[in-house]
Amino acid sequence: MSATTTLNCLSNGSFALVKEVVAEGLTRRRLLDLGLVPGTKVEVIRRSPAGDPIAFNIRGAVIALRRDVAGQVLVSPWK
C-alpha cells in the first residue's frame, strides 16, 4: 500500500487518490463539494507562476487551490 501524503506535496503531472479531507467546517464542505470525496482520482496539473496556488484536475474541471488548503487533503499517490 502506498504512503499517505497531502495534495500539495505532489509534483506536477502526478495522480493521486483522495483518502480523506482533514479540514473542518466550511473549508471541509467546500472541498467535498468540489468533488474531493474519498476515492476520487486527482491530477496535479500545474503551479501558478508564483508557485501558489496549484491547479488540479478534479472530476473533469481544472480547479486551483491554495497550498495550505490543498494540504488538508490526504491522498495516496497513484501510478
Binding site: I63, A64, L65, D68
Partner: peptide
C-alpha cells in the same frame, strides 16, 4: 483568517 480559495479555470 484567510478563507479557503478555490478558483475554477474554465475551458
Amino acid at each position: 483568517e484567510l478563507s479557503s480559495f478555490a478558483l475554477e479555470l474554465p475551458p
